[in-house]
Design a protein around this nucleic acid. Structure first.
Lengths: 207, 207
DNA sequence: AATACTTGCTAACGAACGTTAGGTTGCTTA
DNA sequence: TAAGCAACCTAACGTTCGTTAGCAAGTATT
């Protein structure tokens, strides 16, 4: 079950951890080399440049988020159900790759063109899919929000803050996080009436 | 009305904008000097080090957030009302200093000890004040959340995501943002019953 | 008129940066 | 057994980094 990592993958994994901890710019190739127990120059046997690592992490994570969203949206249902599944999918990806997610969310600005533009375009598309669900929910009368754009931003704020506090060894598991998040986004602090929410069991698309 | 900035303040303001745009580490003193139209060495007639700028920005913003929260909490009321006022106060500070807020929220990790520890301690205290309000709301029956800590994190996620999209020239004004944020946090996407919320007019503590 | 303060300059420091060139070792494959 | 390849090395490249030293001009204060 334990995946055997190629040297290149080991480098990426270690770099990702450092990028998360210190930031891309503040992480030197010598820092990375030191963490790997080799010399800085040796890294270039495996990668073309420092930025290539960042690119690979960012676009791999983008792919993962899209794949998870695709799977979540392949199941029809009410806007509420679809939003819950989308949230769960996002949280799953995020919590399964905490370091890579942090890099994806915070270090993308150090991408150079044309990768930066491509990244931003992907972000827009992804956000748009969520916005679509919100729009459907408003149309159907399930949701009632003062501003559709604002609602989407709120959802992403909640989703993308998770990595700042989530610890795999903590008591809160990904599924629980997703459920709480859905509950809070859909009903807020006040509402005790959450019976209309689908239960975690129904959310499982696979076993 | 237009405040006259000392040279030191001009440097800080310019540095803050650059730190937000490129990040602390990726901003060089020569970048900063160039933006100011002077030589890098000249900056040191006004400041002791690059990090001193970051320290001043971070701790000045911390002070502003605390002052605003103090004012908001000086008025008694239900937990709902107090939370709304605290949110409004936070949004006001955030939107009035977008660049400094971004630096405060994202670049603090480049502080060296002992400033880093002090910063984190202040953050904890600030978060604790919000958590207190949530706790009161749960006790009084106003709020019903699965997890108090989680609810606080949700609030801060919403609050601290604003700077990534807020534009002063945009159509959404700080007060409107605060109202929408309170509404979404308190009632979520679903609830149309928001009559229990105090209206913006009641939120004004000064004129 | 003398003093002090503000603001800026040129020149340069040692350190760290990302990266390249060229070579060596040891394992795997034909 | 030879060839190929993955992995890593030392040495060094040109550049940029934050910062210091020493000095000069302008402005405000005494």
């Amino acid at each position: 079950m334990e995946a055997v990592l190629s040297r290149k993958e080991q480098i990426e994994k270690t770099a990702t951890a450092l990028f998360k901890m210190k930031g891309f710019s503040a992480t030197s190739m010598r820092d990375l080399a030191n963490a790997l127990g080799i010399e800085a120059a040796s890294i270039y046997s495996h990668i073309k440049s420092k930025e290539e690592i960042l690119q690979r992490v960012c676009f791999r994570m983008a792919q993962e988020f899209f794949d998870a969203l695709d799977a979540a949206e392949s199941i029809n249902g009410t806007a509420t159900e679809r939003l819950q599944r989308a949230i769960t999918a996002h949280v799953q990806v995020l919590t399964k790759n905490t370091a890579a997610s942090a890099v994806f969310l915070h270090e993308w600005r150090h991408l150079s063109e044309p990768h930066l533009a491509e990244y931003l375009s992907l972000r827009d598309k992804y956000e748009g899919r969520f916005r679509s669900i919100i729009r459907d929910g408003i149309s159907s009368g399930e949701f009632s929000v003062p501003d559709e754009k604002f609602a989407t931003l709120m959802i992403f704020s909640g989703l993308n803050w998770i990595h700042t506090w989530y610890k795999p060894e903590g008591k809160m598991q990904p599924e629980e996080i997703a459920d709480n998040l859905s509950a809070m986004l859909l009903t807020g602090l006040n509402n005790t009436q959450r019976d209309f929410l689908i239960t975690p069991t129904h959310l499982n698309t696979t076993n």
